[in-house]
Amino acid sequence: MTILEVDGFSLSFGGVHALRDVSLTVAEGSITAVIGPNGAGKTSLFNSISGFYRPQKGRVTLSGQDVTRVPAPRRAAMGLGRTFQNIALFRGMTVMDNVKLGAHVRMRTGPMSAMFYMGRARREEVRVRAEIEREVFDFLEIDHIRRSPVASLPYGLQKRVELARALAMRPKVLMLDEPVAGMNREEKEDMARFILDVKEQWGVTVLMVEHDMGMVMDISDRVYVLNFGQRIAGGTPAEVQANPEVIEAYLGADDMTTLRERLRGERGAA
């Protein structure tokens, strides 16, 4: 079952082609990775899927519905959650408020009942609080920092809080933009485990952009490779690793042995 489908995205800024006729499908309940060298258009693709960029050509379908013309906040409400490459948390707020914001689309309180904080508004706040404590904080092991301001947390924890915020949305598809970039090995292992758990326990489909080859090859069901805004390969991790075009894109030459060694080495690390 395909849950997210991108069909022929083309996006250009002035004369620069960020994406050229990129298509991909994401199967429900899978982990799908998009890889590619710097500047390949991975983040442009993500921004187009979540609705920040409007590609000049192409369509995107979410659970069978065409959402090409749907603005970003509506897509979020339809179950498209995401995190950012450079953490986009609200730095002044506590972890708790950040994660509660993730549940924003699932709540209904309007300004009037909010100001009186009676009846429905109060019940809704308490219900969401309990849900977050039970489902998100326990799961990601961040209950001890719930009252800390986000800005005071170390990088690895901030990444985890951002994942928590995305999960509080209860998304159908979770898009992770470089979830383990800049982490040490231990933090990477934790994050890889969380991503697998998200897929298995929550049943959430994951689409991620990642540079860490070891992790991508280990946990992904399907991998797409972008280069210069074009999709040059797509398939299972093993197929992609064996693809000579991919090897050329990464190394600039068909130096297969070096790449294989690099992949093996990084997989061992992660």
Partner: peptide, 8 residues
């Protein structure tokens, strides 16, 4: 921007 990603 992240506010609108969260559906605000």
């Amino acid at each position: 921007i992240s506010a609108s990603v969260l559906g605000i």
